[in-house]
Lab assay of single mutants.
Amino acid sequence: LKKVVALYDYMPMNANDLQLRKGDEYFILEESNLPWWRARDKNGQEGYIPSNYVTEAE
């Protein structure tokens, strides 16, 4: 899975979204639905995130 790091905080707009915290790492599960990607956080929560809020992890 592709790993990304959040560049900004993101508060979910609806139940399908995943909250982002700046500096945290996330795994990308699906990239087909631009600009929204399906992601999983370190706690196993899954949801959609804005792809322009993250960058690929080193």
Score class of each variant (00 low, 15 high):
residue 1 L to Y: 12
residue 1 L to F: 12
residue 1 L to W: 14
residue 1 L to E: 06
residue 1 L to S: 06
residue 2 K to C: 06
residue 2 K to G: 04
residue 2 K to E: 03
residue 2 K to H: 07
residue 2 K to Q: 05
residue 2 K to F: 09
residue 2 K to M: 08
residue 2 K to I: 07
residue 2 K to Y: 09
residue 2 K to S: 04
residue 2 K to T: 06
residue 2 K to V: 06
residue 3 K to S: 06
residue 3 K to W: 09
residue 3 K to Q: 06
residue 3 K to N: 04
residue 3 K to A: 05
residue 3 K to E: 03
residue 3 K to T: 08
residue 3 K to H: 06
residue 3 K to R: 14
residue 4 V to Y: 09
residue 4 V to Q: 02
residue 4 V to N: 01
residue 4 V to F: 08
residue 4 V to R: 03
residue 4 V to E: 01
residue 4 V to L: 04
residue 5 V to T: 10
residue 5 V to R: 09
residue 5 V to H: 05
residue 5 V to A: 03
residue 5 V to L: 08
residue 5 V to K: 08
residue 5 V to N: 04
residue 6 A to E: 00
residue 6 A to K: 00
residue 6 A to F: 01
residue 6 A to P: 00
residue 6 A to S: 05
residue 6 A to V: 02
residue 6 A to H: 00
residue 6 A to Q: 00
residue 7 L to N: 04
residue 7 L to M: 09
residue 7 L to E: 03
residue 7 L to C: 08
residue 7 L to Y: 03
residue 7 L to G: 02
residue 7 L to W: 03
residue 7 L to R: 06
residue 7 L to S: 04
residue 8 Y to M: 11
residue 8 Y to T: 06
residue 8 Y to R: 13
residue 8 Y to K: 11
residue 8 Y to N: 06
residue 8 Y to P: 00
residue 8 Y to A: 09
residue 9 D to S: 06
residue 9 D to V: 02
residue 9 D to I: 02
residue 9 D to E: 05
residue 9 D to R: 02
residue 9 D to G: 04
residue 9 D to K: 02
residue 10 Y to F: 11
residue 10 Y to C: 04
residue 10 Y to Q: 03
residue 10 Y to H: 05
residue 10 Y to R: 08
residue 10 Y to K: 04
residue 11 M to C: 14
residue 11 M to Q: 12
residue 11 M to L: 13
residue 11 M to D: 11
residue 12 P to W: 02
residue 12 P to C: 05
residue 12 P to S: 07
residue 12 P to I: 04
residue 13 M to W: 07
residue 13 M to D: 09
residue 13 M to Q: 14
residue 13 M to E: 11
residue 13 M to Y: 09
residue 14 N to H: 14
residue 14 N to D: 10
residue 14 N to L: 07
residue 14 N to T: 11
residue 14 N to C: 15
residue 14 N to V: 06
residue 15 A to N: 11
residue 15 A to D: 12
residue 15 A to F: 10
residue 15 A to R: 11
residue 15 A to W: 10
residue 15 A to L: 10
residue 15 A to K: 13
residue 16 N to F: 12
residue 16 N to K: 10
residue 16 N to L: 11
residue 16 N to V: 08
residue 16 N to Y: 13
residue 16 N to Q: 13
residue 17 D to K: 09
residue 17 D to E: 15
residue 17 D to A: 12
residue 17 D to C: 15
residue 17 D to L: 13
residue 17 D to T: 09
residue 17 D to M: 15
residue 18 L to S: 00
residue 18 L to Y: 01
residue 18 L to V: 03
residue 18 L to N: 00
residue 18 L to D: 00
residue 18 L to F: 04
residue 18 L to E: 00
residue 18 L to P: 01
residue 18 L to R: 00
residue 18 L to M: 07
residue 19 Q to K: 09
residue 19 Q to E: 13
residue 19 Q to T: 10
residue 19 Q to D: 04
residue 19 Q to F: 08
residue 19 Q to G: 10
residue 20 L to A: 01
residue 20 L to Y: 01
residue 20 L to N: 00
residue 20 L to V: 04
residue 20 L to C: 02
residue 20 L to H: 00
residue 20 L to W: 01
residue 21 R to K: 13
residue 21 R to W: 13
residue 21 R to P: 00
residue 21 R to F: 13
residue 21 R to L: 09
residue 21 R to V: 15
residue 21 R to D: 05
residue 21 R to S: 08
residue 21 R to T: 14
residue 21 R to H: 13
residue 22 K to C: 08
residue 22 K to H: 06
residue 22 K to R: 11
residue 22 K to N: 04
residue 22 K to P: 03
residue 22 K to G: 04
residue 22 K to T: 07
residue 23 G to F: 04
residue 23 G to Q: 03
residue 23 G to S: 04
residue 23 G to H: 05
residue 23 G to P: 00
residue 24 D to Y: 09
residue 24 D to T: 06
residue 24 D to K: 06
residue 24 D to G: 07
residue 24 D to L: 08
residue 25 E to Q: 10
residue 25 E to H: 14
residue 25 E to A: 09
residue 25 E to Y: 15
residue 25 E to T: 15
residue 25 E to W: 14
residue 25 E to P: 08
residue 26 Y to I: 05
residue 26 Y to T: 00
residue 26 Y to M: 02
residue 26 Y to R: 00
residue 26 Y to C: 02
residue 26 Y to K: 00
residue 26 Y to N: 00
residue 27 F to M: 09
residue 27 F to S: 06
residue 27 F to T: 11
residue 27 F to Q: 07
residue 28 I to C: 03
residue 28 I to R: 02
residue 28 I to T: 02
residue 28 I to F: 02
residue 29 L to M: 08
residue 29 L to T: 07
residue 29 L to W: 05
residue 30 E to T: 07
residue 30 E to D: 15
residue 30 E to A: 08
residue 30 E to S: 10
residue 30 E to N: 08
residue 30 E to F: 09
residue 31 E to M: 13
residue 31 E to A: 12
residue 31 E to D: 13
residue 31 E to S: 12
residue 32 S to V: 08
residue 32 S to W: 09
residue 32 S to R: 07
residue 32 S to F: 09
residue 32 S to L: 10
residue 33 N to P: 14
residue 33 N to T: 14
residue 33 N to L: 11
residue 33 N to D: 14
residue 33 N to Q: 11
residue 33 N to H: 12
residue 33 N to Y: 10
residue 34 L to T: 15
residue 34 L to C: 14
residue 34 L to H: 15
residue 34 L to P: 14
residue 34 L to Q: 13
residue 34 L to Y: 15
residue 34 L to R: 11
residue 34 L to F: 15
residue 35 P to G: 15
residue 35 P to M: 15
residue 35 P to D: 15
residue 35 P to F: 15
residue 35 P to R: 15
residue 35 P to I: 15
residue 35 P to L: 15
residue 35 P to K: 15
residue 36 W to M: 15
residue 36 W to N: 07
residue 36 W to A: 06
residue 36 W to I: 10
residue 36 W to T: 08
residue 37 W to C: 07
residue 37 W to A: 06
residue 37 W to D: 02
residue 38 R to K: 14
residue 38 R to S: 05
residue 38 R to L: 15
residue 38 R to H: 08
residue 38 R to N: 05
residue 38 R to C: 09
residue 38 R to Y: 15
residue 39 A to T: 02
residue 39 A to S: 03
residue 39 A to V: 12
residue 39 A to D: 01
residue 39 A to F: 02
residue 39 A to R: 01
residue 40 R to G: 03
residue 40 R to A: 06
residue 40 R to L: 08
residue 40 R to P: 01
residue 40 R to D: 01
residue 40 R to E: 04
residue 40 R to V: 10
residue 40 R to Y: 06
residue 40 R to Q: 07
residue 40 R to W: 06
residue 41 D to F: 02
residue 41 D to M: 02
residue 41 D to K: 02
residue 41 D to P: 00
residue 42 K to N: 09
residue 42 K to W: 07
residue 42 K to M: 14
residue 42 K to Q: 11
residue 42 K to R: 11
residue 43 N to V: 07
residue 43 N to A: 10
residue 43 N to G: 08
residue 43 N to T: 10
residue 43 N to H: 13
residue 43 N to Q: 10
residue 43 N to R: 09
residue 43 N to W: 14
residue 43 N to L: 10
residue 44 G to W: 04
residue 44 G to R: 04
residue 44 G to S: 04
residue 44 G to Y: 04
residue 44 G to F: 05
residue 44 G to I: 01
residue 44 G to A: 04
residue 44 G to L: 04
residue 45 Q to D: 10
residue 45 Q to M: 13
residue 45 Q to C: 13
residue 45 Q to A: 12
residue 45 Q to P: 02
residue 45 Q to G: 08
residue 46 E to S: 06
residue 46 E to T: 08
residue 46 E to C: 06
residue 47 G to D: 01
residue 47 G to V: 01
residue 47 G to S: 01
residue 47 G to H: 01
residue 47 G to Y: 02
residue 47 G to R: 01
residue 48 Y to W: 15
residue 48 Y to A: 05
residue 48 Y to T: 07
residue 48 Y to G: 03
residue 48 Y to R: 09
residue 49 I to V: 08
residue 49 I to Y: 01
residue 49 I to K: 00
residue 49 I to S: 00
residue 50 P to N: 12
residue 50 P to L: 11
residue 50 P to T: 03
residue 50 P to D: 06
residue 50 P to Y: 10
residue 50 P to E: 03
residue 50 P to Q: 06
residue 50 P to A: 04
residue 51 S to T: 07
residue 51 S to R: 13
residue 51 S to Q: 09
residue 51 S to H: 11
residue 51 S to I: 08
residue 51 S to V: 10
residue 52 N to K: 11
residue 52 N to I: 10
residue 52 N to C: 15
residue 52 N to H: 14
residue 52 N to S: 15
residue 53 Y to T: 03
residue 53 Y to N: 03
residue 53 Y to I: 04
residue 53 Y to P: 00
residue 53 Y to E: 01
residue 53 Y to Q: 05
residue 53 Y to L: 10
residue 53 Y to K: 05
residue 54 V to I: 07
residue 54 V to T: 05
residue 54 V to P: 00
residue 54 V to E: 01
residue 54 V to G: 01
residue 55 T to P: 01
residue 55 T to E: 10
residue 55 T to W: 08
residue 55 T to G: 09
residue 55 T to D: 05
residue 56 E to G: 10
residue 56 E to S: 13
residue 56 E to H: 11
residue 56 E to D: 13
residue 56 E to C: 11
residue 56 E to M: 13
residue 57 A to C: 12
residue 57 A to T: 12
residue 57 A to Y: 12
residue 57 A to P: 12
residue 57 A to S: 12
residue 57 A to F: 12
residue 57 A to E: 08
residue 58 E to A: 14
residue 58 E to V: 15
residue 58 E to G: 14
residue 58 E to S: 14
residue 58 E to W: 13
residue 58 E to F: 14
residue 58 E to K: 12
